[in-house]
Amino acid sequence: MKMHNFKLKESGLNRFFGPLESKIMEILWTSSSDMTIKDVQQKLDEDKAINFNTVMTVMNRLVEKGFLQKQSVARSFHYKPVMTMDAFMETQSKELTFDLIEQFGSLAVTHMVDALDKVDPELLDQLEQHILNLKKDR
């Protein structure tokens, strides 16, 4: 699932979602089970009071966008993420990387390698090993 809006100046999940969407997704990803709208609202209320209808609207939009599944259980709806947070981040980082390389080619690769060296030199060693493994498999 490809995100259409990536906010460069934001951080974490806010790069992909609006602020309330991010909080809702984080709550659902850290939950050990499906949750109702009321469950999520109560978790959100620990920060500040958020209207039930607002939470319901945002959660249903996340269903429409394909990020949440909605299931009728007894007399309520239960929601759960379509994929784990790790799977989501993996998918998004892969899509972003492909888009950058498709648009900017070797410039993007050069800047990524420079960033690896500045952020964590060990990542540069991991990249080198990954490239060697890819060349072996050809």
Rank of each mutant, 00 (worst) to 15 (best):
7 K>D: 03
95 E>H: 10
5 N>V: 14
72 S>H: 11
55 V>N: 03
18 G>K: 10
27 I>Q: 09
122 E>M: 14
35 M>I: 03
74 A>W: 09
124 L>C: 02
19 P>R: 11
106 S>V: 10
104 F>L: 15
34 D>Q: 15
13 L>H: 01
105 G>T: 05
27 I>T: 12
95 E>R: 11
89 M>G: 01
33 S>A: 11
73 V>S: 10
46 E>P: 04
97 T>H: 07
102 E>V: 07
138 R>W: 05
91 T>M: 10
114 D>R: 12
130 H>I: 02
74 A>Q: 14
64 E>Q: 10
71 Q>A: 08
114 D>F: 06
97 T>K: 10
128 E>N: 07
41 Q>H: 05
84 T>H: 13
6 F>Y: 14
108 A>F: 05
59 M>D: 03
88 F>E: 02
34 D>K: 15
119 V>R: 13
76 S>R: 14
88 F>N: 02
39 D>I: 01
75 R>S: 08
11 S>I: 01
43 K>A: 11
86 D>A: 13
50 I>Y: 08
32 S>T: 15
88 F>S: 03
18 G>F: 09
35 M>T: 03
9 K>R: 13
134 L>D: 09
14 N>Y: 02
125 D>V: 08
118 K>R: 15
52 F>G: 01
114 D>T: 11
75 R>L: 06
121 P>W: 06
85 M>N: 08
5 N>Q: 13
87 A>L: 11
5 N>P: 00
22 S>K: 04
86 D>K: 15
1 M>Y: 12
14 N>M: 04
103 Q>P: 01
76 S>F: 08
54 T>Q: 10
5 N>K: 15
49 A>V: 08
118 K>S: 10
64 E>Y: 08
22 S>Y: 04
13 L>Q: 00
62 L>E: 00
36 T>G: 01
49 A>M: 05
137 D>T: 02
71 Q>L: 07
82 V>I: 12
135 K>M: 09
59 M>W: 02
64 E>H: 06
118 K>V: 01
89 M>A: 05
23 K>P: 05
52 F>W: 14
36 T>F: 03
37 I>A: 04
49 A>P: 03
94 K>P: 00
1 M>K: 13
10 E>Q: 06
3 M>P: 02
133 N>L: 07
110 T>N: 04
121 P>M: 07
91 T>P: 01
13 L>K: 00
124 L>F: 10
13 L>F: 05
94 K>C: 04
81 P>G: 02
115 A>M: 10
67 F>K: 00
60 N>G: 08
65 K>G: 02
93 S>R: 14
64 E>P: 00
93 S>F: 07
28 L>V: 08
